[in-house]
Each structure stands twice: as C-alpha cells, then as structure tokens.
Amino acid sequence: MRIAVVGLGAVGARAARQLASTEGVDEVLLRDIDDGRRSEVAASLGAIATPEPQSVTAPPEADAVVLALPAGDHAAAALPLVERGVPVVSTSDSVGDVEALLDLGPLAEAVGTTLVLGAAFSPGLSCLLARHAADLLDDVTEVHVARAGTGGPACAHQHHRALGGSAIDWRNGGWQRRAAGSGRELCWFPDPVGAADCYRAGLPDALLLVNALGPVERVTARLAATRRDRLTARLPMLRRPHPEGVLGAVRAEVRGRVDGRYETVVYGAFDRPGVAAGAVAAVAAVAAVRGDLGVPAGAHGLGASTRARELLGQLAVRGVKSAAFTG
C-alpha cells in the first residue's frame, strides 16, 4: 500500500509517522513546500518514506492521499485526485474548505471513490464519538460537539479566524448563522482538561454531522476560548503560536430516544490535538484503501461511518483513547 501525505506541519508529520508504522503500508510519499521540513520528516521515518521534490507538481501516484495543507487549498488539491478515483482524506477544519469539498461529492460518487472530510481532532475524532453515541440510540434529536486546544501553528491560526467569523448551527430543519464568540457554555471535558468556557465559532462540524446521523433537530459546535481569544479574534495574532499544541480535548453530546425514553450520551477524549489528528487521518486513509471505512462513495465526514466503533478501537491501539461521561 502506498499512501501520500501532502503538507508536513504538525498534523501531516504525525499522520506520516502513523502510516509508516502501519502494517500493510509499504511506502509513504511526502510532499511539502519546505525542503528542509520534507527532508527532516523523511529522515525520521527511514526507508519507508519517499520525499518528492517541490518540482513535482503532478498529483501523487498513491493508493490514497492525506491532505494536511493549511486551510484554503484542499479542494483544488483534491480535484485531480478525485477525477482519477483516488481516495482523499482532508484534515481541514475550515468551513470554506469543507463546503468546497462537499461540492466535489457528486464527482466522487460518480467515479466510485471516497472523499473524507474533516479527518482530524474536531471534526474527525469528535465525529466518530458522535456516531458511536448515536448508534446507541433509536433516533437522534440533538448533537452538540465542543473542542479545546489546537494542533500546530496552522491550526492555531484557523482557531483564531474561527472566533472572528460567524458560526453555523442546524436548528429545526434550517441553518442559522450567529456571531462567533457568542453563546458561552461551560463544557466538561475529560480530565485533566476539565471544564472550559466554550463559544460559537466558524466550525464545519454541523455541516458534516447534520446528514450523517439521520434527521436531527439541532447540531451545534463550540470552541474553548479565553477572554483574550475573543477580544483579539478580529485582530492579527498577537503572539506566535506553539510549534505543536499542548494538551486538548473533544466531547460529543448526543441526545435522543431509546425505547421511548429520552437519553443523553456523552463521549470525550483528550490528547495533543496534532497527535490525535494525525492518527485519525492515518486510520481513515488506510481504511479507505482497504474498503473498511464504512461510508459510501462520495464526500463524507467520519460521522457517516457505519464502523465508528472499529475505527475508535484502532485509534485506541494507537494511543488515542476515548471516555464515556457517567456522572
């Protein structure tokens, strides 16, 4: 199996490491505009890695491609791959990227390939948790996801932009846009992250979950933020972000009915976001090649997978473990 990783930031480099240690993966192609970064990651992976020079502009020759590029470039990079029928896994959490990739869904369906959207920490891991929770219910009425923490610098910049834009919620059969940074809610994440104030933000989770879990009344997504984050969201970032984010967490709260009773299921996970996102992208890429992803041809988030439990099990083996709220 030959899998390419395009973009070797915090998430892409972690995805490449996960792929290099996966049974059945014979070669990991590496692409990045930074020659030094590409050589550094290739050296750390050993003989299984093949760095491709920046002069190579044709789509990667691979069984699947992980796009770990900065926000804004994913649809253009995915199009030639989808046209050739190559499975593509995008890690972008940008609303614009997700909307543009969803537009490629009919093409992917027509050629019989899979385009996986938001395969990162949140969306991504949060979508799998939401789907796993939904599978315990007879029908789902509400889904609420939240996340704390960022991966690498590109993720931190996207986090900053998300708090300065507008949020998209699904309510009673229609989309509603609200100001990002509003709607404060205290969300409890697994220890040691604990409780954090979370706010509406420009997140694509609702776009990926609203059709994945059947008819639902409400889907919301929130982002943990400090007062400074909210006050400076519409200004340039005032300080350089961490090279790779510190500990973060996600949670998925799903409400619905079981045997006529109204139930709430809450799952969560904590990890360094870049590490967890890389693992999610790697697992999704391998599953897409093997036909084990549990989604039909087309463009889908991981919430559409019928094999969420198995995918979460594979992530647990890789160290990304989930927890259930039992309070």
Rank of each mutant, 00 (worst) to 15 (best):
P192G: 14
L213Y: 09
G298K: 05
H242A: 14
R200M: 05
A179G: 12
V265W: 04
G291P: 00
E263K: 12
F270Q: 15
D259K: 11
Y267S: 12
V275L: 12
V210Q: 11
C187P: 03
E263W: 11
A285S: 11
A288Y: 02
L238I: 02
T220R: 07
D292K: 02
G174Y: 14
R227Q: 12
E263A: 14
G260A: 08
R222K: 06
D292I: 00
R251E: 13
F270L: 06
A269D: 10
N211Y: 11
G214Y: 04
A276H: 01
G248F: 07
G301Q: 01
P215C: 13
G301P: 05
A269P: 07
P296V: 03
G164E: 00
L209M: 09
V283P: 03
L223Q: 11
R240H: 02
G268K: 13
R184G: 10
V266P: 09
A225D: 02
V254Q: 07
R240E: 05
D259Y: 08
G214I: 01
L209K: 08
D197S: 14
P204N: 08
V258L: 15
G256T: 11
Y199Q: 04
A201T: 00
P192M: 13
L247V: 07
G268I: 13
A269T: 07
R230I: 05
L209S: 11
A224N: 04
G278K: 03
P273I: 02
G165H: 05
A304V: 01
D169S: 13
L293H: 04
P296A: 05
C198A: 14
V193F: 11
P192W: 14
A276C: 09
V289T: 04
V258D: 10
L235S: 05
V246S: 14
R261E: 11
P243Y: 00
A299D: 06
F189V: 02
L213Q: 12
G268R: 09
G260H: 06
R218M: 07
H300A: 09
V258H: 12
D197P: 06
D197V: 07
D169Y: 08
A206G: 03
G294W: 10
A179P: 04
G256F: 06
